[in-house]
């Protein structure tokens, strides 16, 4: 799977956080984004759009990211989901991994961390931008 062909769902209540993540992913070649402003909307959009990759914040209104992730994993146990949060406590990281997250990114985001995570998950031999 190429990052540039992937459908990516970003669930974060902050328009700024969504924009920052989209900018970083766009720089790496991604172009197909779906946005959700809370956990409930993220689950709805996951079911409707079946994205290839999901980024979820933890602290969100209506439904938090961990609850949303559990629902997404029930829908698709193979879902590729990454939690992106400023609350990177051991407890939250454990909860995220137990809920099915493949990785945990501590905010503020930095390009290298994101790139390393994606290079490990996507076929880096095809996606040149991830190898730079």
């Amino acid at each position: 799977m190429l990052l540039k062909d992937s459908k990516i769902l970003i669930g974060d209540d902050s328009i700024l956080a969504r924009r920052r993540l989209k900018d970083l992913l766009s720089d790496m070649g991604a172009s197909h984004f779906i946005e959700a402003v809370n956990g409930a909307e993220a689950v709805e959009k996951y079911i409707a759009e079946q994205p290839d990759l999901v980024f979820l914040d933890i602290v969100m209104p209506v439904k938090d990211g961990i609850c949303a992730l559990k629902e997404i994993m029930r829908q698709n146990p193979e879902a590729l989901a990454i939690i992106v949060s400023s609350v990177g406590t051991q407890q939250q990281i454990k909860a995220a991994i137990e809920a099915g997250a493949k990785d945990f990114l501590q905010k503020p985001l930095n390009r290298d961390q994101l790139k390393n995570i994606l290079a490990a998950r996507f076929d880096a031999s095809i996606d040149n931008t991830l190898r730079e």
Binding site: L16, A17, V59, V87, G88, T89, Q90, Q91, Q106
Partner: peptide, 25 residues
């Protein structure tokens, strides 16, 4: 605008998240 508003929220949320990490660690 909405980005200015989001910046104020985002900074507070980021700071509080990092505070939680510190308290936990």
């Amino acid at each position: 605008d909405e980005i200015v508003q989001a910046s104020i929220e985002d900074f507070l949320n980021l700071h509080n998240g990092l505070f939680h990490v510190n308290m936990s660690n």
